[in-house]
């Protein structure tokens, strides 16, 4: 089916701890999970958030709930209580990840 934007096939919630943001990315249907694991790599997520995130991106897999957890370091211009951004707590990083397009031929 070609390229698909994550917002069509996933939901996501983000939150902060210090200067780190994490994003839970959830497959709306179980069969999408393996596609996410192949396509939504930490490298791609780091690239996606260029200009917002300065540090490294780690990824943890949660096959039991068809979810991935991304941990983004150096994501909040110093952290919630120091940042002068509007989204100082990283609440919108989840929806921002849903902008990403992935290849989804076999799903």
């Amino acid at each position: 089916m070609g390229n698909v934007q994550l917002r069509e096939v996933a939901f996501a919630r983000s939150g902060d701890k210090g200067n780190t943001v994490n994003i839970g990315l959830f497959a709306a249907r179980p069969e999408w999970y393996e596609v996410f694991v192949r396509e939504v790599t930490p490298e791609r997520v780091k690239d996606h958030f260029r200009g917002l995130v300065e540090g490294e991106v780690e990824c943890y897999l949660m096959p039991n709930i068809h979810a991935m957890n991304f941990v983004l370091r150096g994501a909040l211009a110093g952290g919630g209580s120091t940042s002068i951004r509007m989204d100082n707590l990283g609440k919108c990083f989840g929806s921002n990840l849903l902008r990403m397009e992935i290849e989804a031929d076999e799903a």
């Binding site: 919630r13 902060d16 994490n22 839970g24 959830f26 979810a67 957890n69």
Partner: peptide, 16 residues
């Protein structure tokens, strides 16, 4: 199940 999942990973780093 979806609302519970979303909160499960909220402000979590290593889920293991």
């Amino acid at each position: 199940i979806e609302t519970v999942k979303e909160q499960m990973l909220y402000e979590i780093h290593n889920p293991a």
